[in-house]
Design a protein around this nucleic acid. Structure first.
Ligand code: MN
Ligand code: MN
Ligand code: ZN
Ligand code: ZN
Lengths: 161, 161
DNA sequence: TGCTAGTTGAAAAACTTTTTCAATTAGAAT
DNA sequence: ATTCTAATTGAAAAAGTTTTTCAACTAGCA
């Protein structure tokens, strides 16, 4: 699974005639292996274990690249933080656990009727849509049924806001 | 229209027992009057014309406040920039022009079926959703039918990425 | 007319992202 | 294998965004 995503991204780079460098390999592997959304800083930290020389700048540049080609998607959180997550294939959205950060990808967003209706009403030519859902994953739900406090965090707490 | 929104926000502040200060008034007026999404910095710049002493910190704090009470919504752009826009009433989403920044609000997002289906499939308890649409508004479409270059920008270009 | 909890702005810090630029390198062409 | 070249890299600095602190201030109320 992770391997598939990874090879997908690798092939993608080749197709687009971009070089497959050691720094990029390290970054690709981290993102493909992660089952969570990761911030650029977190990706940098993890990838450095494989390629200690890696600079944060390269992480940003690689994320731009991968986002452009659609291999990665930026996830927006309501508090303003940004994370990145690997995209399986094609158009996709994410459902993120607000407690532990686990994410599920889904493709069957049937926005076509809504978009058509809005285009008719407003006259806009709609060509981009962003949809994200958030809630507690099954694990987190069962661990604290109507919990307020967080029991475990796989993603380290952000001091950001 | 703008007046309605404005008074709505004012009343809201009172209801929540928050003080209606001069700095906040200036900020409220700017947001209510704007027909565009505005960044904190832009809000600051505009509100200073009414209340020159205003600090940017207060803008951030007021935006947090208004967001919490639902009078304002943060709009996320694909390039990572954040802006704020007044909310009419209740749950709402925005359709933003990618060329000039004009925005339309819409409420009839029928995500219930999608959400129910995903809850069944994944076991998540979905309680937050974020939906934003982007495209060219009628004006921008007609001014440059298949235009690539931007003709006018109501919102000043961001140097941010 | 005070009282007080809530609010403010300056300054500094923390954090995030981009720009520059000289050095390096992947991949294609000999 | 060797050469060539455009793409890529990392350090450093700059730019941009957001938060924290804290002493001074003030809206709303008694
Ligand atoms: Mn965002
Ligand atoms: Mn909705
Ligand atoms: Zn979870
Ligand atoms: Zn427009």
């Amino acid at each position: 699974m992770a391997t598939l995503v990874s090879s997908g991204m690798r092939d993608g780079l080749r197709e687009h005639r971009r070089k497959l460098t050691r720094p990029r390999q390290a970054i690709l592997e981290i993102i493909a292996a992660a089952d969570h959304h990761l911030t650029p800083a977190e990706i940098h930290k993890r990838a450095r274990k494989k390629y200690p020389h890696l600079g944060l700048v390269t992480v940003y540049r690689t994320l731009d690249l991968l986002t452009e080609y659609g291999y990665v998607q930026r996830v927006h959180f309501s508090d303003g933080c940004h994370s990145y997550i690997a995209t399986g294939q094609g158009h996709a959205h994410h459902l993120v656990c607000s407690n532990c950060g686990r994410a599920e990808e889904f493709e069957d967003c049937d926005l076509a009727p809504l978009i058509a209706s809005l285009q008719r009403k407003t006259g806009y030519e709609i060509n981009v849509h962003m949809l994200e859902l958030m809630g507690r994953c099954p694990d987190c739900s069962s661990r604290s049924p109507r919990g307020v406090t967080q029991i475990r965090r796989t993603v380290p707490p952000r001091n950001h806001k």
